[in-house]
Amino acid sequence: MIVASYVLVCLAALGFGYRLLAGPSLTDRVIGIDGLLIVGITAIVLRAMETGEGAFLPVTLVVTLVGFVSTAVVARFIEGRGR
């Protein structure tokens, strides 16, 4: 069941990567980055469930906070820049 979760998450990463590369506006690229961060968090959790070892789990906290702050900063940037 964890292998099936890996497959689904990899397909999701392909979709988010397509939006990151091809998205016509800066907002689309931020959407792709956010999705890829979520995919990374899910992959870390799946790895911890597979091996039973939680050494990488604090990375999920760091990625969560860094993703929020970076999204807020890019939002201010878009609002001032106008595109």
């Binding site: 506006s25 604090p58 906290l61 969560t64 929020f68 820049r81 595109r83």
Partner: peptide, 30 residues
């Protein structure tokens, strides 16, 4: 750690999406 990460995701993801969509609407480059 996992529960704290889940709580932070529930708090921050809607706020970040609100900021981004408001900035996109205000900028109107799209």
């Amino acid at each position: 750690t996992l529960l704290l990460a889940a709580a932070l995701q529930l708090l921050t993801l809607p706020v970040a999406a609100n900021l981004m969509s408001r900035a996109t609407y205000m900028a109107r480059g799209i």
